[in-house]
Amino acid sequence: YDRLVLSPGVDLKFDAIEGYDPRDSNYVPHAWKAGKQTVALKQQITTMRDGGTFIIAPPANPYRCPAGPYERVSMVAHYLKKHKPKSKILILDGKTTFAEQDLFEQGWKKLYGYGTENSMIEFVPAPDGLVTRIDVRSRTAYAGSTNDPFQADVLNIIPPQEAGAIARSANVVDASGWCPVNQETWESTRVPDVYVIGDAAQQAPMPKTGFAANAQAKVCAAAIASSISAAASYDSPA
């Protein structure tokens, strides 16, 4: 190749949470990659008893789709309010704050009594909400420095993330687990003529979202076109 563009996506770091193994993900789904996982989570929620507890554990930053866990909470709350109104949602979070928090909490207060004794939704921020270990069979999450146990009827663990495997094979990943790039061109700072866009790139303060990836692709394409044009002009006879 003359130029190579990679969009490796993300891999889930199951080993970051003690007791969680990829083979357990049908019983304790992450549902962070669509398909069988999202179907499994839906089935568990729809068969959960009225009065049950749905626990979701979002990871620390950075990760794919920062607002995603809280959109999921909102969708589950909408379903539970209609079909299983005695149920509760517990957010055990690896962060102290989250994306669009004010907007989400505004809606939760209006619709689900958030912040009151009768709230359907409870948010436990880090450090107390940081899940470090789970017991898959009992669907118990252990969080905080004292490993407090939280038992769920449905346990949704979203592991920490890193750049997809192809990025590691291409040696464009650094010690952070992500791909450092020149954000003016999205060329890797580790391997010349290789460009990395999307969730795998180190793109802060840009969030790891589809909108951001779309914008990066346009900048990257323009940079590649410019570099090829410049090279062609340089090689042309006077």
Rank of each mutant, 00 (worst) to 15 (best):
Y1K: 08
Y1G: 11
D2T: 15
R3Q: 12
G9S: 01
V10Y: 13
K13L: 14
D15P: 09
A16G: 02
A16T: 12
G19W: 00
Y20N: 04
P29T: 05
I45S: 05
I45V: 15
G52C: 03
F54C: 03
N61M: 12
P62F: 04
Y63A: 02
R64A: 03
C65R: 00
P66L: 02
P69V: 04
M75S: 14
Y79Q: 05
K82I: 13
S87W: 05
K88N: 10
I89M: 06
I91P: 00
K95S: 12
T96M: 12
T97F: 10
F98K: 00
A99S: 15
E100N: 14
Q101W: 10
K109R: 15
K110C: 07
Y112E: 05
Y114Q: 00
Y114L: 02
E117P: 10
F123I: 11
P125K: 04
P125C: 03
A126Y: 09
P127K: 04
I134T: 06
I134F: 05
D135V: 10
R137Y: 12
S138A: 08
S138W: 02
T140F: 07
A143K: 00
S145Q: 12
F150R: 01
P160Q: 08
Q161H: 08
A165R: 13
R168F: 14
R168P: 09
R168E: 15
A170I: 09
V172I: 14
V172C: 03
N182W: 13
S188I: 02
D193Y: 11
V194Y: 06
V196W: 04
I197N: 06
D199H: 02
A204H: 13
P205G: 07
G210C: 06
F211E: 15
F211S: 14
A212I: 10
A213M: 07
A217C: 08
A217P: 08
A221L: 08
A222S: 14
S227N: 09
S227L: 07
S227W: 03
I228K: 09
A232Y: 12
P237E: 15
P237K: 13
